[in-house]
Write a protein that binds this DNA or RNA. Structure first.
Length: 110
RNA sequence: GCAGUAAACUGGACGGCCGCGGCGUAAGCUGAGGAAAGUCCGGGCUUCACAGGACAGGAUGCAGGCUAACGGCCUGCGGAGGCGACUCCAGGGACAGUGCAACAGAAAAUAAACGCCGUACGGUCGGUGGGGCGCGAGACGCGCCGAAAGCGACCGACGAGUUGAUUUCGGAUGCAGGUCGCCUGAUGCCGCGACGACGCGUAUCGGGUAUACGCUAGGAGCGGCAGAAUGCGAGAUGCGCCGAAAGCGACCGACGGUAAGUGUGGAAAUGUGGGGUAAGAGCCCACAGGAACGAUGGCGACUGAAGUUCCGUGUAAACCCCAUCCGAAGCAACUUUGGGAACGUUACGCUUGUCCGGCAGUUCCCGUAACAGGCUUGAGCGCACAGGUAACUGCGCGUCGAGAUAGAUGACCGUCUUAAAUGACAGAACCCGGCUUAUAAGUUUGCUGCAAGA
RNA sequence: GCCGAUGUGGCGGAAUUGGCAGACGCCCGGGACUUAAAAUCCCGUGAACAUUAAGUUCGUACCGGUUCGACCCCGGUCAUCGGCA
């Protein structure tokens, strides 16, 4: 992803959960927060209760691909955390992508 | 063809385009599995100064072989199951010792409670064609009513309870109406045994204190034997009371013998039949069963002819004994790069216990340390040949097939194979060998049984 | 990744040298008391079948094994919880 780096530290995730703006969708939930950087950072989370390793990897890949498809339309200067919800298990690529677009629209960042 | 059994394999292929990890200056090349899983075993590798000994602790447990090693694999042996192909088995030792075996049952591992048998033993009692007195005409069988007894069953009640079949006694009365070698006779033993349980078993039923059948406990009666007085002769019979010598019998107790029997139980001292005995017993005999020794064969587990000796359970996935093996920790190991503190010659430490021996700088804390190495060529994979029943081994040729570090494989399409491909189980984290578990659908081969055909 | 522990009614929690499973408490249901409720007292309560009554079978996370007999002993799965950095 050209203009996006990844979030890795636990304290970054904690800061977004407690102080970021959030919006739930059918399959994913997005936390967003403004930063003073001039690029974007993204963290992906799939909880352990979601399923075994194969299902969690599948969900992460679909979300990452969906994010890549709409990355150009999202402004810089933000951190995001995308959380996969339990219903996303078994969902197709188009469903995830439409839901992600809807959620980002809800946050007014599209 | 149907049914089965054993083994092996596949787990879609090719391409376009937008993205991701690794290698590479670049072009480009390459990128999850048969289980990558569970972490149940075994190793490599690394560190603990050296990796030494003993105990504790743990693991394994038929034989021979394979392997780096194993609790794995192969081939056999023994046992169990199957008509068979074949499958399954933690498969050493219970005469080294200790423990445990609830309930039921007389008794559960040191047998003896009941029973059976014996005794010139002790005690209690019984009945009797016997003796005395009195009454008196019926008796036997069947049916009715009531009571009692032993044997069983049941319960929100455990009781003078209810109930089942059986037996005995009594009562009222009805039916019926007997007998000549016969009547009385407590009781015991042997044999047969109508009937027969709500007990036990089997079958049926969706199920039941259901139904059916069988068996058993119980059991009138019949036959034989033992049993006290030389009974009686046409009413020989019946009932009540008194009385008790001898003999007989029963019960209780004592002493001894016995291991046949006793509804239980997973298991009761090997089973059946006969002899034998006071009663009994592998006490003896026949047949059958088991254990030890044993010729022969096999490297061995094992086999087990003839024969000899013997016959008190199970449990060691209870403690235990025997044999063999095991130093510990794990890539978050460890190596490399700082700062501070403490203790110092038997103190600390040597990676979960104890002791002995041995060693010399060791230990702790902080930087939520950093980032690099460890990190992928290895007991590797494929093919051919040779050895071996096989597991496996040797040798030759070819080949390189992920290496991430919040963690890379995804999206959209096309073509082909196909019943379907929109995928069943499932994602490497130092690396191997196994085991175990999950798995849609499909393919191939060997073998077995049945049926048919030639 | 490594190490360890636990699993018994609706809930907590007993039962162990291997011998009657569900003690005890809470919740729940029914009844008594009350005008009604609370509190209190009494009774019941694992599941299925059968209910007039008596009863039968299955049940200690799941699947096997050892044993006459398993919550307990052994092996294997599953789930949950805790610890190490």
């Amino acid at each position: 992803m050209r203009s996006t780096s990844s979030l890795k530290l636990n304290r970054d995730f904690r800061r977004l959960y407690s102080r970021g703006k959030s919006a739930p969708g059918a399959y994913v939930a997005v936390y967003a927060m403004k930063t003073r950087r001039n690029d974007k950072r993204l963290g992906l989370t799939v909880g352990k209760s979601f399923g075994k390793a194969v299902r969690r990897n599948r969900a992460k890949r679909l979300i990452r691909e969906s994010y890549r498809a709409i990355e150009e339309k999202i402004p810089n200067g933000y951190d995001f955390v995308i959380v996969a919800r339990g219903r996303a298990d078994g969902a197709g690529f188009w469903q995830i992508k439409r839901d992600l677009e809807y959620v980002f629209g809800k946050l007014g960042l599209k």
